[in-house]
Design a binder for these strands. Structure first.
Length: 423
RNA sequence: GGAGAGAUGCCUGAGUGGCCGAAAGGAUCAGUUUGCUAAACUGACGUACUGGCAACGGUACCGAGGGUUCGAAUCCCUCUCUCUCCGCCA
């Protein structure tokens, strides 16, 4: 959520930067500014009225104590009207505040000045490409066929017990998953991230804190009977650890990571591009989350990007890094890098990580602040990234590393899998 | 699922109608003392909104929302959450 004061004082700038996200509603912005004006006016009158009422109440108390009953009655009589005014003003203030809040929630985060303009994924800018795309023979198979050839992932069985998008990993497939999780967690630990095991359901307040609610309500699985949501990413519980918290400046940078399954309804996405592991309702992911001082959040964004790339290099996967254009970035992000790996048999790039700086947009919702040696608490900056999402990594490992003899496991994973080949 | 207890500041914990934004202790920070450490002493120490160039004010907040009252942390109602015991159970 953007801060009203900032909007009020930088209307033109806000408008221009929102335009990069293809958000063009000067009307909404002006409405917000005028609602804020109304809010402050109402607050002012209310405060003054309450001050008067408080002072009269004190007088009554004093007079009573002095035994001046009649005078007390006279003062009492004066308070009747004030009471009604206070109630009316209070109601009005609540109404204005709630309207203002609703409108503010409709404003996406401001993109950083370095974010490229554009509306569609085609306008994302490739920052760099790394690694050699393998030359596969003519008869190379896509991962879903490899999965059934070696009997390591069973989509039909998943259909049977849950539904489409809930695959069953078997044998070496299951072991490979576990190996990847452990490898990712160990690496994150070595990079200074503290490991967290959060709940994989969250309440409404948490969903709101990181911005999934009310925005993407339909994308999360909801457990109606207990009013809980299955998490779409570990970002939600791990970031909400710091909801309503004032941290000390010296604690920065706060680095947490977590492995969790992730659940996404993916309502409305069908078609050839969602075959196999490309898009699932349940998948595994290791997430890294940082809370940092506003002064160095962009430096940290680069560090996180470099870290994610180091994993891809170790896995020997060809990848590229995209700087997302305004139109392709999420509602809450100020700047996002996507990492995509090359899936050789499908001959397409698949997103395996998304690293974002939210600046203080999430922090404002979360009321996540820090206190320096002096001065008032101010909002922290939050960042997160996948490091990494498993299914598409698995897909590209299977496709890129297929040989006559079987699927070769990258060196770095062998200590974790205990085998070198899936055959 | 059944029964009971509770929710106060960073923490512990007092406070049953006005002098309570809130005692006391601890923690933290600054200072004094000290050869150093410890101890002792002194002071500071919530958040949000808002007025003001500032100094300094105003308002709100004692789980949340409503009510009673001139006046509510304190009384009443509703809700939420937490804890304990029993039952069930990984």
């Amino acid at each position: 959520m953007l801060q009203v004061n900032y909007i009020r004082e930088n209307r033109e700038e806000v408008l221009n930067r929102l335009a990069v996200k293809n958000f063009k509603q000067p009307g909404l912005l002006d409405e917000i500014i005028s609602l804020d004006e109304e809010r402050r006016q109402t607050q002012n009158i209310l405060d003054n009225t309450a001050a008067e009422s408080n002072s009269l109440a004190k007088q009554v108390g004093d007079l009573m104590r002095q035994g001046k009953k009649e005078e007390a009655e006279i003062v009492k009589a004066k308070t009747g009207g004030l009471k009604e005014q206070i109630k009316t003003l209070g109601d009005k203030l609540a109404e204005v505040e709630s309207k203002l809040q609703t409108q503010l929630l409709q404003l996406p985060n401001l993109p950083h000045t370095s974010v490229p303009k554009g509306k569609t994924p085609e306008e994302n800018v490739t920052v760099l490409e790394n690694g050699e795309k393998p030359n596969l023979p003519e008869n190379a198979l896509p991962h879903w066929e490899l999965a059934s050839k070696y009997d390591i992932i069973d989509f039909e069985l998943g259909n049977k017990i849950a539904g489409a998008g809930f695959p069953v990993y078997k044998g070496k497939g299951a072991k490979l998953q576990r190996a990847l999780i452990n490898y990712f967690l160990d690496s994150a630990g070595n990079a200074g991230y503290r490991e967290i095991q959060p709940p994989i359901v969250v309440n409404e307040a948490s969903g709101f804190g990181t911005g999934q609610l009310p925005d993407k309500e339909g994308q999360m699985y909801h457990i109606g009977i207990d009013n809980l949501y299955l998490i779409p990413t570990a970002e939600v519980p791990v970031t909400n650890l710091y909801r309503d918290v004032i941290v000390k400046e010296e604690e920065f940078p706060i680095k947490n990571c977590a492995y969790t399954p992730c659940f996404r309804r993916e309502a409305g996405s069908y078609g050839a591009h969602v075959r196999g592991l490309n898009r699932l309702h349940q998948f595994d992911k290791v997430e890294i989350v940082q809370i940092v001082h506003p002064d160095n959040s962009y430096q940290v964004l680069e560090e996180m990007s470099t870290y994610v790339q180091s994993l891809l290099k170790e896995l020997e996967l060809p990848y590229r890094v995209l700087s997302l254009c305004g139109g392709d970035m999420s509602f809450t992000s100020a700047k996002t890098y996507d990492m995509e790996v090359w899936c050789a048999a499908q001959a397409r790039w698949l997103e395996v990580s998304s690293v974002s700086n939210f600046e203080n947009y999430q922090a404002n919702r979360l009321k996540l602040r820090f206190k320096g040696s002096e001065g008032k608490p101010q909002l922290a900056h939050t960042l997160n990234g996948s490091a990494l999402a498993l299914p598409r990594i698995l897909a590209s490992l299977l496709e890129n590393n297929q040989t006559e003899a079987g699927i070769k496991i990258p060196k770095v994973l062998i200590p974790y899998t205990g085998f070198e080949l899936i055959n």
